[in-house]
């Protein structure tokens, strides 16, 4: 019932303050700690080119958990989610278009 109310308030554009249970927070904290430990462990294993890939994949997963749960984006309005997506989009633009330069430098003249 209370969830329905919260949904209704969302629909009206009002702020419904979602309370996250301590259990969820603890689980996320645990996941973050496991992520950190895995990153440290993986850095000691020689995986060649995959070392940075794995480190970045773990970091991205951890960042996603923080944004979704600790920053409450999972329970926020669509506008907030759109704002977060705008940030991610700009970040991907920065990385993608910068890499476009790096990748194509070796191609020589057009």
């Amino acid at each position: 019932m209370s969830e329905q109310n919260a949904h209704a308030q969302h629909a009206e554009g009002k702020h419904a303050h979602h309370i996250v249970s301590p259990k969820t927070y603890a689980l996320i904290l645990l996941a973050l700690l496991v992520g950190t430990a895995t990153t440290v462990w993986a850095s000691y294993v020689d995986l060649g080119i995959w070392n940075p890939v794995i480190a970045l994949a773990i970091a991205c997963t951890k960042a996603t958990l923080v944004v979704l749960f600790f920053m409450h984006v999972k329970y926020s309005s669509k506008l907030t989610m759109l704002t977060v997506l705008a940030g991610i989009f700009m970040f991907l633009t920065l990385i993608g278009m910068t890499l476009a330069d790096y990748i194509s430098r070796a191609w020589g003249q057009w």
Binding site: M90, T93, M97, A100, D101, Y102, S104, R105
Partner: peptide, 21 residues
């Protein structure tokens, strides 16, 4: 405005293809 920044870098050694784009 977000997709044009490398035009400040045309002579700085970036790729010719990036210059074109």
């Amino acid at each position: 405005g977000f997709f044009v920044w490398a035009h400040h870098m045309f002579i700085m050694g970036i790729s010719n293809y990036a210059v074109l784009v």
